[in-house]
Design a protein around this nucleic acid. Structure first.
Lengths: 344, 344
DNA sequence: TTGTACGCGTTATCAA
DNA sequence: TTGATAACGCGTACAA
């Protein structure tokens, strides 16, 4: 194995010797301890520069019992939403002086569970966690004793901090956006039949509320399931809807990747968007601004989510109360109208 | 600060006491030292399970002088190519028992330099590094003493391992793909005028070689610069090309993000793709399969790149020869034809 | 204001 | 096959 102790193995002792002080004084300088004579400080700093000394983080971590690293567990970086979320989180963490270690779960339950007990937890002061397959039972059965903030969706009853989106309200707003444009055969793509909790359930609920408020019946035939929320699944679901012969003049896709798949399927089959079918997504990933047609979507305030989550986590870490009373922050969303739902 | 020593602070000593053995024996069991009596091993394992013991990674790292973590420095996770690359790298590293720490540089020279001297280097056994703004002088002036593999493009003369794409050949193949379809006014988007090295230079060279081989003149007016290789820049560059009045019947965009911006601009202005203008990109990001029209591209063999890079890095780490003779691996590419360059 | 000495939890070197 | 004990490099009481 290679040496992590880079810097040619220069230690505090070497710096101390060179500067003619004790190791404690070097440590003081490094940690910005206030009561140091300027001359001493300068000698130490010079010695540090001359020797190219860097603190050994492993030693510091061991001694301090903390690492300055937080984990970010998410399904897959290749899903644009999570790539953009990771980007935002890394930025927010950097501003707090924290480093981010990303762990991918592939949205598989086993791996999502593994994240919670992994040895990494141990190298990490806390965890930002975006589970998809996990449920309350999994979470409570584990008795976790590290700072954690759940991201993206609420696990009801879980004794943990949450930073979530207003899934129901936002899905309702998206559906109402379609209804307001005169659409009456509004399908939704991304349902997870049989699931009791999770984004899919909440977004379906919002969809139903909008229909109900508009006095429209809920038609199961207009609900297309898609377990993976990626482009391929969106395209396949749209194909099924079209093949089924049920009339559709609008689609609320439960995220943008699905929506882009939907657009793709419609384009492939020569269905005009938005003229014949209007489409709205959810997440407002960057790609939504560049698809053809550009994609209307729900902007969930990603930066706000990232920033808030990091702040909450940092509070827990600093206070050392992994088990304090749970808090929930619901980020604000906006409906972003683009070509895919334009009125002609 | 929170305790990184999770696990309720159970240490090897506790396990040893419980199992009635010495701490060294516990360590032996953990590290799969072969000569342990089965009965002893079992007692230790049971004690570990009962106490819920986990090794303290900070202590192990300090003692071993290595961390099992490698850094991955890249411009931005919100660029789909790098998100997918990170995904591949994390997967490859996981298979090697390594963890990946991502660092974003924003493609800014200062931050790219900072990565090389950052304290993180010190927590990391090696670095996978994908610089955009750095040049040879930056790299050689630093005298780096940690294992590093450069990713994605070659810095000629740099004394480091490289895993690169065949930028020139691939760009040439992309351009030839357009020429083979009868296009004669082929523009390129993404040039970095004045730069002496880097992907932009190499891809421009491949473009020129293809023109030359086809007996076509090189026209500077057909070269659109774009410093950031994102969608917005691609769209803007295409707008400039169209506004300039120079005739264009095909575009080779130096990456897919640019190409998607190009498609967007063309769509916005009612130019038919591929009928009026054919478009090919570079990177073959997932989105290329779902844009409208779907985007032809160069597939650079991302998984192969990731896997090779991790393997090379690991070899350096294991052998402890940060300064061994540099190796270069050039990944294979393929041209992927889709709708954006279809012949009608 | 600075120095001494110990402990953080492992792993490695011996010896037994 | 196992055990005692010395590092690894830093932070921090405590002493000076």
């Amino acid at each position: 194995m290679g040496r992590a102790g880079r810097t040619g193995g220069v230690t505090m002792h070497d710096v101390a010797a060179r500067a003619g002080v004790s190791i404690k004084t070097v440590s003081n300088v490094l940690n910005e301890y206030p009561y140091i004579r300027p001359a001493t400080r300068e000698r130490v700093e010079q010695a540090i520069a001359e020797l190219g000394y860097q603190v050994n983080l492993s030693a510091r971590n061991l001694r301090r019992g903390s690492t300055g690293i937080i984990g970010l567990a998410l399904p897959e970086l290749r899903l644009p939403y999570f790539a953009e979320l990771a980007d935002s989180v890394i930025g927010a963490a950097e501003r707090e002086g924290l480093t981010v270690l990303i762990e991918q779960t592939g949205a598989e339950r086993t791996r999502e569970l593994a994240v919670l007990t992994s040895a990494q937890r141990q190298l990490t002061d806390g965890l930002l966690y975006s589970p998809l397959a996990l449920d309350l039972a999994d979470l409570t059965s584990l008795r976790l004793d590290f700072p954690m903030v759940l991201l993206g969706e609420r696990i009801f009853g879980a004794d943990a901090d949450h930073v979530t989106m207003a899934n129901v309200d936002a899905a309702r707003a998206a559906t109402e956006h379609l209804l307001a444009r005169g659409r009456r055969r509004v399908a939704t793509v991304g349902a997870h039949p049989g699931e009791a909790s999770g984004s899919a359930v909440l977004r379906l609920q919002g969809y139903r509320e909008a229909l109900e408020a508009a006095g429209l019946p809920f038609e199961p035939a207009l609900v297309a399931e898609a377990w993976f929320w990626n482009r391929a699944a969106g395209a396949a679901a749209m194909d099924r809807l079209l093949d089924s012969g049920v009339g559709v003049d609008a689609v609320f896709a439960m995220n943008d990747a699905l929506a882009l798949g939907v657009l793709h399927a419609l384009h492939r089959r020569g269905v005009a968007v938005p003229e014949q079918v209007a489409v709205i997504g959810f997440d407002d990933i960057e790609e939504a601004q560049y698809s053809a047609p550009t994609l209307s979507s729900i902007s969930p305030g990603r930066d706000q989510i990232a920033q808030t989550a990091v702040r909450l986590l940092r509070e827990r870490i600093d206070r050392g109360d992994a088990a304090g009373p749970p808090r929930t922050v619901v980020a604000e969303f906006t409906v972003v109208a683009r070509e895919s739902t334009a009125t002609s």
